[in-house]
């Protein structure tokens, strides 16, 4: 028995490439599968949501201007970093009830998912864009262009694979995002933020908050500078209605992709990228 006393990690949030504590000053307790205290997580406030949206907006223009090859390499780099720190994730997953095999499979699948979307960055435009044969003397083409700042409610029961599966297609397409982590299992998301932070992902492209879904959904869906919102878990009827009503204030795109099994074939798709793309059509005359 070593006399080393374990140094416990303080789990903070991830905003603008930094790890600030919540501005609220409040916390909530996170427990392992045995019911023992794992950590004190930040209890994000409405102000934290606003700060995160602001930094995501600031990062948007630069991120969408990155070329597709570069975005692909950065997604691949996230996969590399995740691979190199897999032990940490396997430990955190086992704390919340994953068996060793399950934890290993979860990390494997999360890495593969990043590689999958890394490969799509320079292809979805070719598959889903178009050149349009207009009847007049014009050259006309349609490209996909990212929708903007996306609010994401991460899946509650899949703290790593589910988290990666919702973030990757959004940023692969050039959007920036503010993610609300799994409420009961938020620790993997903050550890994943450390991976992002060492993967050439510009600060502000992904922002991760921890806190109470019931409290924060209202602010995510009502924020006038959020362009779209993604959720995958079934929400109570009342909460769905609230989100959709709030969304009408600025014509937010609300995407509900009800993925049950994150290992399933249809848990990854280029359509999860195009969900957060606008079609932009450009005309130019043809002539001498």
């Amino acid at each position: 028995m070593s006399d080393h006393l374990e140094v416990l990690k303080t789990y903070k949030m991830y905003i603008g490439g930094n790890f600030p504590r919540t501005e609220s000053g409040h916390y909530y307790k996170v427990f392992d599968s045995e019911g023992d205290l794992l950590a004190n997580a930040c209890l994000a406030s409405r102000k934290d949501v606003r700060d995160a949206v602001k930094t995501a907006r600031g990062a948007f223009t630069g991120w969408k201007a990155r070329n597709a090859y570069n975005r692909g390499q950065i997604l691949y780099r996230i996969g590399e970093m995740l691979e190199s720190r897999r032990g940490q994730f396997e430990k955190e997953l086992s704390q919340v009830g994953f068996s060793a095999n399950e934890a290993e499979a979860d990390v494997n699948a999360a890495i593969d998912r990043l590689i999958y979307y890394a490969g799509w960055t320079d292809k979805y435009q070719q598959v889903f864009g178009s050149v349009n044969p207009v009847a007049s003397s014009h050259f006309n083409f349609s490209l996909l262009d990212p929708t903007g700042v996306v609010a994401i409610l991460a899946p509650e029961q899949s703290p790593l694979l589910g988290l990666v599966s919702v973030i990757a297609p959004v940023i692969a397409g050039g959007n920036t995002c503010v993610v609300l982590a799994s409420e009961n299992h938020p620790l993997s998301s903050i550890t994943f933020a450390e991976v992002l932070n060492s993967s050439d992902v510009p600060g502000g492209v992904v922002n991760i908050l921890t806190g109470k879904k019931e409290d924060l959904v209202e602010h995510f869906s009502a924020h006038m500078d959020v362009n779209a919102m993604l959720y995958t878990d079934a929400l109570s009827g009342g909460l769905t209605k609230t989100i959709e009503e709030n969304a009408a204030e600025n014509i937010k795109r609300i995407i509900n992709n009800p993925v049950g099994d994150w290992y399933a074939e249809d848990a990854q798709s280029p359509y999860f990228i195009t969900d957060f793309q606008e079609t932009k059509t450009t005309w130019h005359p043809v002539g001498f």
Partner: peptide, 9 residues
């Protein structure tokens, strides 16, 4: 300019 083949929105 408008055309049926050209997406609009």
């Amino acid at each position: 300019k408008f055309d049926p083949t050209s997406p609009f929105g």
